[in-house]
C-alpha cells in the first residue's frame, strides 16, 4: 500500500470544504481526482503532501514521503535547465539528471536559462523534477497545464514508466491523459455539508 487516506476533512480559509474523503492507492496505481473548480482538489493534495494540516482524519504516506508538484514549478529564471534540475536532484540525494532530461525531451535545452523557456517547456522541466526525486509516490496538481499534445503524451509515458516500476501517482487533472488504467475519483460526493447551527465543534460555530 502506497497511500491510504482515512476520513480526511480539509478546509480552506477556515471553512471545511471536503470531508470523509477516503481511498487507498497501491503501488503501480494512478488515481485521478475530478470535480468542479473550487471543490478542493488543490487543498486535498496540499493536505496529503503535509503542507497544511487536515481538519480531521489522516493520510498515511510512504516513510520517505511524497514528491509534490503544484501549480508553480519552482524554477529559478537565471539558472539553466540543467542547473535547476541538478539542484533538486541533490536536494533529494539523487545523482544523474540525464534520464529525466531525456524522458521530458529537454536534452537540447539543457544549457538554456529557465527564463528563456516557453510555458510548456517550463512545465516539462517542472515535471522532470519529479523524476529526479526518487520518490515512489507522486502528488500532481494540474500537471498538464500549458502542455501541447506531444508533451502530454511524453508525460503520460513518464507516468506509465513510473507506475510500471512500482510507483504510484495521485493527480488532479481535467484532461484525458490516455491512461486507461488510471482510476477516477469524483470529489463531488465528499463536498462538506454546512454543519447545522450550533452543531459544529469548531470555534466559529460556537455561537450560532
Amino acid at each position: 500500500m502506497m497511500l491510504s487516506v482515512h476520513d480526511l476533512a480539509v478546509s480552506r480559509g477556515g471553512i471545511a470544504i471536503l470531508e470523509r474523503v477516503g481511498f487507498v492507492l497501491d503501488p503501480g496505481e494512478a488515481l485521478v481526482l475530478r470535480g468542479p473548480n473550487g471543490i478542493g482538489k488543490t487543498t486535498l493534495l496540499r493536505s496529503i503532501a503535509g503542507l497544511q494540516p487536515p481538519v480531521a482524519g489522516r493520510a498515511e504516506l510512504p516513510p520517505e514521503g511524497a514528491a509534490y508538484a503544484g501549480h508553480a514549478d519552482g524554477l529559478k529564471a537565471t539558472l539553466s535547465v540543467a542547473e535547476n534540475l541538478t539542484f533538486w536532484a541533490r536536494i533529494y540525494g539523487q545523482g544523474d539528471i540525464a534520464p529525466a532530461l531525456h524522458a521530458m525531451d529537454l536534452e537540447g535545452l539543457a544549457e538554456r536559462p529557465a527564463q528563456n523557456l516557453s510555458a510548456g517547456q517550463k512545465r516539462r522541466l517542472g515535471l522532470a523534477r519529479l523524476l529526479v526525486t526518487g520518490r515512489r509516490l507522486w502528488l500532481l496538481d494540474e500537471p498538464t497545464v500549458s502542455l501541447d499534445t506531444a508533451s502530454v503524451a511524453l508525460f503520460a509515458a513518464a507516468i506509465r514508466a513510473h507506475l510500471a516500476s512500482g510507483g504510484a501517482a495521485l493527480m488532479a487533472t481535467h484532461i484525458d491523459l490516455g491512461l486507461e488504467e488510471a482510476r477516477i475519483l469524483d470529489l463531488t460526493p465528499f463536498r462538506a455539508t454546512l454543519p447545522a447551527p450550533g452543531q459544529g465543534g469548531g470555534f466559529d460555530e460556537a455561537f450560532a
Binding site: 503542507l51 514528491a67 514549478d73 533529494y92
Partner: peptide, 16 residues
C-alpha cells in the same frame, strides 16, 4: 522569491 515561484512549497516537502 522562493514563495513566488513555488520553490518554498517544494522545499517544505523536500527531505531536508
Amino acid at each position: 522569491l522562493d514563495r513566488e515561484d513555488g520553490s518554498l512549497d517544494l522545499l517544505a516537502t523536500a527531505p531536508i
